[in-house]
Design a protein around this nucleic acid. Structure first.
Lengths: 226, 226
DNA sequence: TAGTGGTCTAGACCACCAA
DNA sequence: TGGTGGTCTAGACCACTAC
């Protein structure tokens, strides 16, 4: 009963045990296939999984080497805030703060690659009635006309866009910002408190769709497991 | 010339074009194989890649559905600070601030699951001579005895551990912290400045290896592309 | 140019799980 | 319990690249 995951596990064991030390070349697929008594495709599947995870570097002709800097990647799930809050056994709440059609600041317009008026939405996401995250979003209504008809007081732009706006690529950045007077007031934090900020911009094939900045309450951590 | 990546691209196109709307069931592998004129394994490879990326949900018997919340994952590379700095065309610098064998605070000891004295290393990473990141690290010397013989004034614990300490799993969290007096002084930031903080703990099969907190200079963003 | 990983095929059997 | 995805096989050819 030898599947590709068994071979992956055994290979990982050898890497951890330093039987295959960092930087060394491991046996060819054909040799490993013979050793484990499986087809080469099965070995290939296992080694490819390890390469995807960053444990191995594979190159044609050069062979497969154990990566010098193993595990270079951490994957974060991009949460729907409602799911994140409810997943923590809290009661989700939502409050629309503002919704206007206005000219975007130059940096936002440039990031989205559009000119003219954009939909500007600000909202608050609550956990157990207390501020959890503040959302400041610009939406390119030309790319997502349907949003103009949505009552954002009941459905958050966050959720509506995720399910209705297709997007092809995006960028994502996590930073820190000190709470200014307005943010401190809205979030119930002290002025100057260090808050985690997530900025995300998404594009369609042709144009920018939305640029959003989410500011989390004090003490929030964006977590993952490697 | 139809490879699995061509099929992946075509499937993604249909998802974006709403030919396969969110939540709908797409044709079976066998049908798609016939349509594209390839073997079922080739279709399987393509759809599996899309499922890994979060575009599809696949379940035996139930079939393959377009995910309701596409693209849920963002992958960050875990930087070796030297590589990150040099990759930005800056000159990397390193300064060891402290190296002591001491009892760890309870939270650190608990996270690593060890008791007794740990190696406590603090250091500064510089870009073009200016503070870039502050590293505050605890190392379980029982798990990595070799580190006691390393001159950490020349080789950063960051790099040495990456290449010498095998690890099986870890967690990773990004947060924000206000600079206290000491941190502000070391980093050349204002007291109270909001700084991005990354905490990472790694474990072996049996025990914790290291817990580290890296605090970046003001204005730093942890970025990725989706 | 030769060696290595990348991929495809046609067929087969299996594991899971919705109905 | 049957349909669907998950995986394996044996063989083949191809693409890349170190030498």
């Amino acid at each position: 009963m030898t599947g590709w995951q068994d071979i992956e596990a055994e290979a990982l064991r050898r890497i951890h045990a330093r039987a295959w030390p960092p930087g060394s070349t491991i046996p060819h697929e054909a040799d490993l296939a013979k050793e484990f008594g499986v087809a080469r495709a099965t070995v290939n599947r296992a080694l490819q999984a390890l390469a995807d995870a960053g444990w191995l570097d594979r190159r044609r002709k050069a062979g497969t080497r154990v990566a010098l800097h193993p595990v270079r990647k951490a994957t974060f799930s991009i949460p729907i805030l409602r799911a994140e809050i409810e997943g923590a056994d809290s009661v989700y709440g939502y409050r629309l703060l503002g919704r206007t059609l206005e000219e975007a600041p130059a940096p936002i317009a440039a990031r989205l690659g559009v000119a003219g008026a954009l939909l500007h939405v600000t909202a608050l996401h609550l956990a157990d009635g207390r501020p959890y995250a503040h959302e400041d979003r610009w939406v390119n209504v030309a790319a997502v006309p349907g949003i103009m008809a949505v009552d954002l007081a009941v459905a958050s732009a966050n959720e509506w866009l995720v399910t209705h706006a297709p997007f092809v690529r995006g960028d994502y950045a996590i930073g820190a910002a000190a709470a200014d007077d307005a943010m401190a007031g809205v979030m119930g934090a002290a002025i100057g408190a260090a808050l985690v900020t997530v900025e995300r911009t998404t594009w369609d094939d042709t144009a920018g769709i939305t640029a959003v900045r989410i500011t989390f309450r004090e003490g929030h951590w964006v977590r993952t497991v490697i």
